[in-house]
Computed example of a mutant assay.
Amino acid sequence: MLPTPAKPKIAISACLMGFDVRYNGGHKESRLCTRTLAEYFEFVPVCPEVAIGLGIPRPPIRLVGDATQPQAVGTIDHTFNVTQPLADYGQKMAVELGDACGYIFMQKSPSCGLERVKVYHTNGAPLDGGGRGIYAQAFCLQHPDLPVEEDGRLNDPVLRENFLTRVFAYSAWQQLLQEGLTRRALTEFHSRYKYLLMAHNPVQYKTLGNLLGTMGHTDPQELGPRYFSELMAALKKCATRRTHTNVLQHLSGYLKRAISGEDKQEMQHLISQYHQGIVPLVVPLTLLKHHLRQHPDPYLAQQVYLQPHPENLSLRNAL
């Protein structure tokens, strides 16, 4: 028997896993994470505020000053400043969580929020736009390619599918690095991700193809990190009905000689219904996979696009 592949590791704000670590002694359990995703991922809960020695419960902190470089201070005692301890802990955890394939942060938190966290003037008036939590900022600076998301945004099916697609891609890349980054391995990796890239970012799909096409004698150890950074940036762009339709048309083109005219008509009808928003992506995709089982194609069989995440997560049922 082959060993079961390890679940990708995702760091997560501890309050989202149901731990009572918030300033008010409560939690913000995400049932999506604790009940649905926990089966597929190894979650590593982190609460930076507790980790730097703040109690439970505790006086709340807020961000004050410049939105790009705010200070984390007490809301009541403004001389209480934990900016540096939170930043230092972010750098420390960036090293300790070097094998994480994603991070889910608590939104609006002055330590963990990723965007639009309230930042205040010293006189107490809020700034426009907001900023990023101190810990999250320090952590993300060390891992610019890591898929990161806030819990609230995961309620959006498109953003949820996009984030988890990137987590599995990140995990696959880590696996590749463990096995050894060679020219052939890099070419094969890109080959498997071609149609997923086409769905997310058609422009970058061409750019990355050209990058590898001119690889020549370039050391893959040098080219690999650049390729991967560009891949993760490309996948961050959400696929649309238009780009998914384009990929479905490309994939169904491989079957034009193998299936009957009636089957081709049915395939085109379902792709068109998906494009118009009548059926979800899973419908034409299921029929496409059915035909590919009847008429196997080794090149298409390896395409990550067909199954970028476990089928039982049903992520494409809502797209």
Results as ranks from 00 to 15, higher is better:
Leu2Arg: 13
Pro3Ala: 07
Thr4Ser: 10
Cys15Tyr: 04
Gly18Arg: 07
Val21Pro: 01
Tyr23Lys: 09
Gly25Arg: 12
Lys28Pro: 05
Ser30Glu: 03
Ser30Leu: 03
Arg35Glu: 14
Arg35Trp: 02
Leu37Cys: 05
Leu37Asp: 02
Leu37Asn: 05
Phe41Gln: 06
Phe43Leu: 14
Val44Thr: 09
Leu54Cys: 08
Gly55Lys: 14
Pro59Gly: 14
Pro60Trp: 04
Pro60Asp: 04
Val64Met: 10
Asp66His: 14
Asp66Pro: 09
Asp66Arg: 11
Ala67Pro: 13
Thr68Ile: 13
Ala72Asp: 07
Ala72Ile: 06
Val73Lys: 08
Thr75Glu: 15
Thr75Gln: 14
Ile76Gln: 15
Ile76Glu: 15
His78Gly: 07
Asn81Gln: 12
Leu86Phe: 08
Ala87Leu: 08
Asp88Asn: 12
Val95Asp: 09
Val95Thr: 10
Leu97Asn: 04
Ala100Trp: 02
Ala100Pro: 04
Gly102Pro: 00
Tyr103Phe: 14
Met106Gln: 12
Ser111Gln: 07
Val119Ile: 12
Val119Phe: 11
Gly124Tyr: 10
Ala125Lys: 15
Ala125Tyr: 15
Leu127Trp: 12
Ile134Tyr: 02
Gln137Ala: 11
Phe139Glu: 00
His143Cys: 00
Asp145Gly: 01
Leu146Trp: 02
Phe168Asn: 03
Trp173Leu: 09
Leu176Ser: 07
Leu177Met: 15
Leu181Ser: 05
Leu186His: 09
Arg192Thr: 10
Tyr195Lys: 13
Ala199Asp: 02
Val203Asn: 09
Val203Trp: 07
Leu211His: 06
Leu212Gly: 05
Gly216Met: 08
Pro225Thr: 06
Tyr227Leu: 01
Ala234His: 00
Leu235Asp: 01
Lys236Ala: 06
Thr240Asn: 03
Thr245Leu: 08
Val247Ile: 09
Gly253Lys: 13
Ala258Cys: 02
Ile259His: 01
Gly261Met: 01
Lys264Asn: 03
His269Ile: 03
Tyr274Glu: 06
Gln276Val: 04
Gln276Asn: 12
Pro280Met: 06
Pro284Thr: 10
Leu287Pro: 05
Leu288Arg: 11
His295Glu: 02
Tyr299Trp: 12
Ala301Thr: 11
Pro310Ser: 08
Glu311Arg: 15
Glu311Cys: 06
Ser314Ile: 07
Asn317Cys: 15
